[in-house]
């Protein structure tokens, strides 16, 4: 069964059709790139999956329809996402940001927390160990205790990525993780994505504008244009598709 299957997803804002019958699915350990020109509706797909927007059609997570659930309920099922601009909690340290990312995995109740009972302390230490493993994974050790607001943008993007990973998701939605990263940071990111795919077997949907990266890494590509599916399939064929080339680069012909 597919980890996530989207069936004829349609989203309208008044008379504006943002998504028009978009269907795709992603398997465990699969890296699906979602590409398309600006305004194609890529982020809207993510917002529908994570419950921020409510569209028509079906969104099934491991066979269960999650449409209409609140965003925090969907996150608890194991759907994690990153945001285009990082959207970190600037006054919190890297560790605190990641611990917040693990919110859904922590089981302590506020009454016990008020007294910081030994059970709470044990749980916090356990969570901290889990967070340290992720910090180790994304190589952020030196920034551990630094409030993230003052860190370089590229580092912040990686922290946002790590925060999504902290949820121990079954599906990871990556919204332009490479935007604003320099060459070296992009290579690091590519390495992290491949390690997640091979070691953690997490299904990933990846919005990306760097076609070189997409061609190199993605298992499959799904192309959107004005809310419709333009093409879908393995990287080699999709990137050669005339309509995709036309939507992205334009054609010489006058229309």
């Amino acid at each position: 069964m597919a980890e996530l299957a989207i069936d004829r997803l349609t989203l309208r804002f008044g008379g504006l059709v943002v998504l028009d019958g978009v269907s795709f699915s992603v398997e465990a350990g699969e890296l699906l790139a979602l590409i398309g020109p600006n305004g194609a509706g890529k982020t809207s797909v993510f917002n529908c999956i994570s419950g921020i927007y409510h569209g028509d059609g079906a969104i099934r997570f491991r066979g269960q329809d999650i449409r209409g659930k609140a965003p925090h309920q969907i996150a608890r099922l194991g759907v994690a996402r990153t945001f285009q601009h990082g959207e970190l909690f600037p006054h919190m340290t890297v560790i605190e940001n990641l611990l917040t990312g693990r919110h859904a995995r922590i089981r302590t109740n506020p009454l016990a927390e008020m007294l910081f009972l030994p059970s709470v302390k044990r749980e916090e230490v356990r969570q901290r160990e889990a967070v340290e493993r992720i910090i180790d994974f994304v190589e952020l050790e030196r920034y551990r205790h630094t409030p993230v607001g003052g860190l370089p943008f590229g580092t912040q993007k990686i922290i946002g990525f790590a925060r999504a990973l902290a949820l121990e998701p079954a599906i990871l939605l990556l919204d332009e993780p490479s935007a604003g990263l320099n060459r070296e940071e992009r290579e690091d990111l590519a390495r992290f994505i491949l390690r997640i795919k091979h070691e953690l077997k997490i299904a990933m949907i990846w919005i990306e504008h760097d076609m070189q990266m997409v061609a190199d890494l993605a298992d499959r590509i799904h192309v959107l244009d004005y809310g419709r599916t333009l093409a879908s399939g393995p990287a080699e064929s999709v990137l050669k598709d005339e309509r995709v080339v036309a939507a992205y680069l334009g054609t010489g012909k006058k229309t």
Partner: peptide, 14 residues
């Protein structure tokens, strides 16, 4: 503190 800085993001984290 998460809600204070970004409500939508906090919600997307569960």
């Amino acid at each position: 503190r998460a809600i204070h800085s970004h409500e939508t993001v906090a919600e997307a984290l569960g």
